[in-house]
Design a protein around this nucleic acid. Structure first.
Length: 273
DNA sequence: GAACAGGTGAAGT
DNA sequence: ACTTCACCTGTT
């Protein structure tokens, strides 16, 4: 690999592929067979990301660095945010552990659909459902001897029946997926409008979709719309509440509560695995 | 076989 | 407002 061909390079203190891809925010970046890198796809653009010592390099046929800076939220300086999480000893440890994690700016539809699938489900099965969905209804794109599939856009799913989704083995979530795809493709759900709303209004709006409750809504708002104050409460956050006198509350963390949530989620899970 | 997994929504207190 | 339960499916 010719490192001078990288689209960008950055210190792992600022962008850690491990912490970014394993913290639970995304389902389609996987360790490569050489174990020192990740491969995945953002929109229509596959990429390979390699870390050598403390430097991270991104390789892609798509060399528009602005696209990648946006996707990886590179323009945001996480250091002052991370260091401001001094609410208690646990928070300090979680933030230290997660150094280099970045909240991806994922496609809104991909985030919404993925977290609908995630409900009451385990991670291997979530990944397998999404992978199958992309293979069946996305577009094939080749890059560096690997085949990638784009995430199917809502129009590609809107006119399908539950029976068409049966091979995904997504169970009762199939109806939610199709309904959400229809609502988005008919513009009953308007991502641009949601992005301009405050957290509370946007949450209430997206929760009108069947299968989208408070947790899925907040994952969508945080990972799909970049609302850093969104605060998904899942089983891991409920477990972590014991470190906060039982009251783990987004008000503790202000406008970056979602980032704190990811640090706490990721660190708590690491302790129990 | 039963319990569980990064929830949700409806129905019951 | 809080509790309980069913919902598909694959894994342990």
């Amino acid at each position: 690999m010719d490192l001078t061909q990288a689209v960008f390079s950055i210190k792992s203190d600022f962008f850690s592929p491990l912490h970014t891809f394993e913290c639970g925010q995304c389902f389609r970046w996987e360790p490569s067979t050489d174990a020192t890198s990740y491969i995945g796809i953002a929109g229509k653009h596959p990429a390979k990301i390699i870390q050598i010592d403390d430097i991270v390099y991104l390789f892609s046929n798509y060399t528009n660095s602005e696209f990648w800076f946006n996707y990886f939220d590179i323009d945001r300086n996480y250091e002052p945010i991370r260091k401001a999480f001094t609410q208690n000893d646990f928070t300090i440890k979680a933030a230290e552990f997660s150094r280099g994690m970045r909240i991806l700016r994922q496609d809104p539809w991909e985030a919404l659909c993925s977290f609908i699938i995630s409900q009451c489900n385990n991670i291997p099965r979530i990944k397998s459902i999404i992978k199958k969905m992309c293979e069946m209804f996305g577009s094939k794109i080749s890059f560096m001897d690997n085949e990638f599939y784009s995430f199917p856009n809502p129009h590609a799913l809107a006119n399908l029946s539950e029976n068409d989704l049966a091979p995904l083995r997504s169970g009762y979530r199939a109806a939610y997926i199709i309904n959400a795809a229809r609502a988005v493709s008919l513009e009953q759900v308007d991502f641009h409008a949601l992005a301009s709303m405050n957290l509370c209004d946007a949450e209430r709006e997206i929760m009108k979709l069947p299968g989208v409750g408070k947790k899925v809504a907040n994952c969508f708002l945080l990972f799909g719309l970049g609302k850093t104050d969104a605060f998904p409460v899942d089983t891991w956050i409920k477990k972590a509440a014991k470190y906060f006198d039982g009251n783990l509350n987004p008000a503790l963390f202000g406008e970056y509560a979602g980032i704190a949530q990811q640090y706490i989620f990721y660190y708590t899970r690491s302790l129990e695995n």
